[in-house]
Amino acid sequence: MNSRIKGKTIVITGASGGIGEQMAIKVAENGGDLALIARRVHLLEALKEKLIKEFNSKVEVYPLNVTDYDQIPHVFHTILQDFGSIHALINNAGYGIFQEAHETSFQDVKGMMDVNVLGLMACTGEALPYMRKQGSGHIINIASQAGKFATPKSSAYSASKHAVLGYTNSVRMEAKRYGVKVTAVNPGPIATNFFSIADESGTYVKNVQKFMLDPAYVAEKVVNALFTNKREINLPRWMNMGSRIYQLFPSFVEKVGNNLFFKK
């Protein structure tokens, strides 16, 4: 059991499935208390029942769409009333749609920005003042390798994750003065239902299936980093190396990899 996590209150958005659900399980395994946020309350309730039964954890659920910005202050106020403190916030809620820029509707662009960026900022804006006041805390933002290395058919999604990384890097420097840690997580494709929306055709999943990350593996890496000074978590390592090469030699990578990038 991880002594850093035991007895701490961890808030997770997008906790009803995928890596959000797996992170909740890992936190419970290590004795942490959980405030679970998502839209699908029936899945949250089922997860709560499982965690209480298996780990005897303190778990509360909070139905919320993170684009309901007016409701976010109320939810975080309720969490503080229920738990007395917030030690960590994992901003995991997000989704993507893989289409060429001219095919992506403005409604879909706005939807990704609203959830991936503004919802994350709004939740952080509620948790951070409390953490600053208590002189400790940890904010973990789930970004993406797409935020470091944009490819065709993901223009809006990549833009949203670029924004998350820019915001995270700035907040990290601001929060450090108050004892609050901030970490960005940049995974490649993960084997979750994310792609039921992002890749309706199934083409991308078919092309990259053998490279997909196990959500339990990603969750373990994130939870193990709680309350450490980890700046970034980049998964898998070889994909992050591609991002680094792209930053150094963008024209070369775009020229050589152009056909490969269109396999979404």
Rank of each mutant, 00 (worst) to 15 (best):
V208C: 00
K206S: 12
A159G: 12
V182W: 09
V75S: 13
N186M: 03
Y69M: 01
V218T: 06
G119D: 06
E45L: 05
Y167N: 11
E21W: 08
I79G: 05
A146E: 02
P189Y: 11
E54C: 05
L235K: 05
S154M: 08
Q99H: 10
P152C: 07
G147N: 03
F76A: 00
N193P: 12
E254S: 10
A35K: 04
G257I: 00
I79Q: 04
I79K: 02
K176L: 08
F149R: 08
G84V: 01
T168Q: 04
R39C: 03
S144Y: 14
A159T: 11
P73Y: 15
G166H: 15
V223Y: 04
I197E: 12
Y178P: 00
R177Y: 13
V208G: 03
L43Q: 10
R39K: 06
E29H: 10
N141L: 02
T183N: 01
R231C: 05
P73D: 09
K133N: 14
G7V: 04
I72K: 05
K210A: 10
V59N: 00
G7M: 03
Q71L: 10
G135L: 01
L36I: 05
M112L: 05
E200K: 07
E254I: 04
E100D: 15
F194V: 00
E29G: 07
I233W: 07
A191M: 07
K210I: 04
I37G: 14
H77K: 11
F262R: 13
K230A: 00
N116K: 06
E60P: 09
A122D: 12
G242R: 08
Y95K: 05
N258A: 14
Q134T: 15
I190D: 03
M241W: 15
S136A: 09
F55P: 01
V208D: 03
L226N: 06
L260S: 13
R39P: 08
K26T: 06
A101N: 15
E21Q: 08
A219R: 01
G17K: 12
S251N: 11
M239Q: 11
V208N: 02
Y62N: 04
P250L: 11
V171T: 13
R177D: 10
Q209E: 13
D82M: 00
A46V: 05
S57V: 01
G188T: 07
M131C: 07
L235F: 09
G18L: 02
A219T: 02
H87V: 00
V218W: 07
A150R: 03
M241E: 15
S154E: 14
Q247T: 10
L44E: 07
I140D: 09
K50Y: 14
V256M: 04
N224F: 00
K148D: 11
K153C: 14
T78A: 14
T183E: 01
I90K: 05
H138N: 07
N141Y: 11
D114L: 00
